[in-house]
């Protein structure tokens, strides 16, 4: 048998929060993936909204590129508010 395609499942746990990845499942199409996601991942009120996306459509960063992607951020301390020394007299900034 040919495997059904793999879908990644994202759930918004409650109103106002972002969708978060919870796992994956196989389904023949997106409609079935949605129904299965409901049964597999939300049996106890885990969410108010579900996204499913076929896994092959996701482009992920390579762990090997971690330094090239994220290292440059760590030496830019001037991007953070704590970098700036301001007079104590100044409240609320």
């Amino acid at each position: 048998m040919q495997d059904w395609p793999l879908f990644e499942v994202f759930i918004r746990s409650k109103n106002g929060l972002s969708h978060k990845h919870v796992g994956s499942l196989h389904a023949a199409d997106a409609h079935m993936a949605m129904q299965n996601a409901r049964d597999v991942y939300t049996r106890r009120n885990e969410g108010v909204s579900i996204w499913v996306v076929e896994a092959r459509h996701i482009t992920a960063s390579d762990p090997e590129d971690k330094d090239a992607l994220f290292e440059p951020a760590s030496d830019k301390i001037y991007r953070h508010p704590t970098f700036y020394d301001l007079p104590d007299a100044l409240k609320h900034m």
Binding site: M1, Q2, W4, A28, D29, M32
Partner: peptide
Amino acid sequence: RDAALAYA
């Protein structure tokens, strides 16, 4: 399983 795939 086959029918679901054919339908999709």
